[in-house]
Design a protein around this nucleic acid. Structure first.
Lengths: 153, 153
DNA sequence: CTTGACTCTATAGTGACTATAGATGCTAGG
DNA sequence: CCTAGCATCTATAGTCACTATAGAGTCAAG
């Protein structure tokens, strides 16, 4: 018995809307339909969607996954570029890690600007803006206080 | 003499369109205009845009920067939430680094699937799709070859 | 028979830009 | 003065990978 879109969603831990989106994007085939127009899927679709989700977890773009699926479907071509793809991703991920570590150290510098000795006032704004020292706080209430007047995203 | 938008762009290493975008988003004030309608900026705007770009480099969203600018402009409020913001960012960045390191180890496993001993064929597709072994390559041409038939993004 | 969960299509919104088209202005060389 | 080639203007649409919303139809349990 075929699966409905909700079943496929559960089986692959994917949202229903995302499945329809992948179909629109040509990653999933147009499925059979029931008399009432419901999409009907098979185990093959479960596999294919699992494949897609695994690739997404590896940070691949939908375009790359499309190409990988095409390769999987017609395996006559060389697989050299798969290796290239993986190498490229490793390099990108290393790059990202490096720049995040730099960012983290910047942020920690920022945090230190306001911590410890409060004699010279909160330096975070000053750090971000070399001309204006933080005019509030005056070394009195410059303390980590989670949940206090955080701006809404 | 006031700066034109291109001068401001050069001074802050920002694209012209991005400056107009920030204006539309309320991060930069509506600037004076020349007789012919050109935007005219001052050193204050250079500072402000530098501030914005520095915050962006710290991974802050435009919404957060808007709030930081409001704080900077009217320093009557408590600066507790700036500390909270920085703490939150550090935690987020740590989280990102962690998950990227996991991803990297996954990718390296993938790479190993096709490297070294080729006796058992390219395993990358097989790794991504536990049922289908990679039917091409047959352990013959499964080798890193950058620039070969890479799919276009 | 009703309720509530599920499904359908179509459209718009997200964030932080980027790209394009078509019009106008400014400046330097001839 | 004329022209070529920039810079600037506005307005709109596109990017990526979804996510959200509206309004309608379907299905199974109680």
């Amino acid at each position: 018995m075929p699966l409905k879109i909700g079943d496929l969603a559960k089986a692959t831990d994917t949202q229903v809307v995302t499945i329809r989106y992948y179909e629109k994007e040509g990653l999933l085939r147009q499925p059979e339909r029931s008399d009432s127009g419901y999409r009907l899927y098979s185990e093959t679709d479960v596999e294919r969607l699992h494949f897609i989700r695994r690739c997404r977890q590896h940070g691949m773009s939908l375009g790359e996954i499309r190409a990988l699926l095409a390769f999987r479907d017609s395996p006559t071509s060389s697989c050299d570029w798969i290796n290239f793809l993986v190498e490229k991703h490793i390099a990108e991920v290393e790059q990202q890690i490096e720049s995040l570590q730099l960012l983290k150290s910047h942020l920690e510098t920022l945090r230190r600007s306001c911590g410890g000795d409060h004699a010279h006032g909160c330096g975070i704004i000053a750090q971000l803006d070399r001309d204006t020292p933080c005019p509030s706080c005056n070394g009195l209430h410059c303390r980590l206080a989670p949940g206090s007047s955080v701006p809404s995203r």
